[in-house]
Each structure stands twice: as C-alpha cells, then as structure tokens.
Design a protein around this nucleic acid. Sequence first.
DNA 1: ATAAGGCCCTGACCGC
DNA 2: TGCGGTCAGGGCCTTA
Length: 283
Amino acid sequence: MPELPEVETTVNDLRPGVLGKKIIAVEILKSGSVAAPSEAEFVKGLKGRTVRELRRRGKFLVFKLDNGQSLVVHLRMTGSLILASSKLPAEKFVRIILRLQGGRSIHFRDVRRFGRMWLVADEESVVGDLGLEPLGPDFTLSTLSAILKKRTTAIKPLLLNQAIIAGIGNMYADEALYRARIHPLQPSSSLRPAEIKRLHASIQSVLSQGIKNKGASTDTYLRPDGGKGAAHLQFEVAHQKGKSCSCGGQVERIVVGQRGTFYCPRCQRLHPMIRGGGTANAD
DNA sequence: ATAAGGCCCTGACCGC
DNA sequence: TGCGGTCAGGGCCTTA
C-alpha cells in the first residue's frame, strides 16, 4: 500500500528521469483515473509541458510544470508509477502513459483503479487540507502533544486522519503504535507523556526506515524501476498475524475504524485515563 | 468532534 | 475447472 515511504521512494527514484523532461504525449488506456479536468482537457493540458519540480506532500505526488500548473497524483491502494522505455508495451494494469522526450515513459499502473490524477492551476485545491508532515520540522513533540490532548478518538484513527498528520497509512500506523507500545484503541487524550514521546519517535523512525528500505511491497506496490521495496520484510506486526513477539505474545488482528489492525495484545495494553485527565505535558 | 456505513474496484481465496 | 461469494483496503462522502 503506498503510504508516505512508498510515495517518497517513488518521488526520489522518478526525479532524475523526469526533471527537465517534456511530456510529448499522454495516452489514457483505460478511463476513470483522471479526477479533474475532463480526460480530453487533461491530455491536451499536459502535452508539451516540461516537468520543473517533483515533490511529495502527504501521500500525494506533485509534478510542477513549466506553465505553473501542477499534475497531482494519488496512488491510493494499488497504484505505482513506473519509469519505462517507451518501446515497452504497457502491461495489463497500466491505465495512463505519459511519454517523455528522450525515449522514456511514465506508466501509471493501478490494479484496482482507486488512484487519481489531477491537472490543476493550484495544487492547494487538491492537497490544501492536509495536516502536518511527520518528517517535517513542524512535527515536534509539543505539537503532537497538543493535538492528542484535545481529541478523544482512538489513537489509530487519529494517526490515519490526513487532515491532522499527512502520510501515515494503515501499515505504518500499526508499526508505530507497536514500537511505542500503545494500544490502537487507546483514547488519544489519555496518552501519558512517556507514551507520546515514544509515539513521536516511533512515527519518525518507522517512516524513515520505510524510506531507507525503498517502501513496502505487501501487495502491488512497485518502485519506478519495476522492483519491489523491502520495508515489509522488517514489519513486526503489520500483516503479521500469529507472529510471535519478543515478549512471548502473538500478533493479533482486530478491526479499528473499519481497518484491519495488527498489534501485540501483551505489549500494547489499554489503560484507563489518568486521574484528572489531559495531562499530556510531554517531557 | 466523532463514529459508522457506503462507495469505488479487482485479485485472492474459499467452499462446493 | 469453474462458479459464486466474501474480503481487503485509502480516502472521501453522507448520515447519525
């Protein structure tokens, strides 16, 4: 599943092949992946543009074009962007091809067709409501403490809320909570200062390690060179039902906020609200 | 603010 | 071999 580390990997690996390259043709092999504008306008608007910048925002990729417009891409669950030779025939699940000057193409591969592309004048119309970048300078311990203090919702759904923190998905939420030894259903405002401190560190460490390992290919995710990532090989709980934990417990799967959730019931225990509540004054 | 349900879509998997 | 049913899953939307 493409989450922050997978999108970051895609951006990093794609960048050298696309920066400064002109898009000479756009082919929509299967419709339904363009969110805006119409498919005809999308094709027309992209043709002839040069990619000036490529960056990640949350789980979105943003291609900044030479006319100021932005091509914004969300891979959702099964999308990948593959940098291929233009001679390579598109395989079954390629929905859109961006042909670049110089003989290469970007293949947008998306098995379940949940992924979307936008061509917009202002990228903020797509990514404007996203919350903090968890690997950015604004994601500090005190900011996280302040966020958690005023929310009663369970911690896992909060981590998945892109309007609060942008980029964490189901797998890395489970890994971060496990590493911080926090139960996924623990109410956010009941987290103790030491737990918040561990969570802040674990969010950054699981995401950084994910990037270092070029993302997780648990399902259909592929890197731009067509290869798989290795991050899932180090997952301790995500998709690891029955695996034994170093504490002697076993990873279980429950459903939290309609999401499959993996955790160790021995290490990650629910605890009651601290007397007086809201004492989230980390360190 | 919060929760729950639906929707999109298709491969994998199960039982028969 | 194949058929039908069920499930997973991110994000967004609607409804409570």
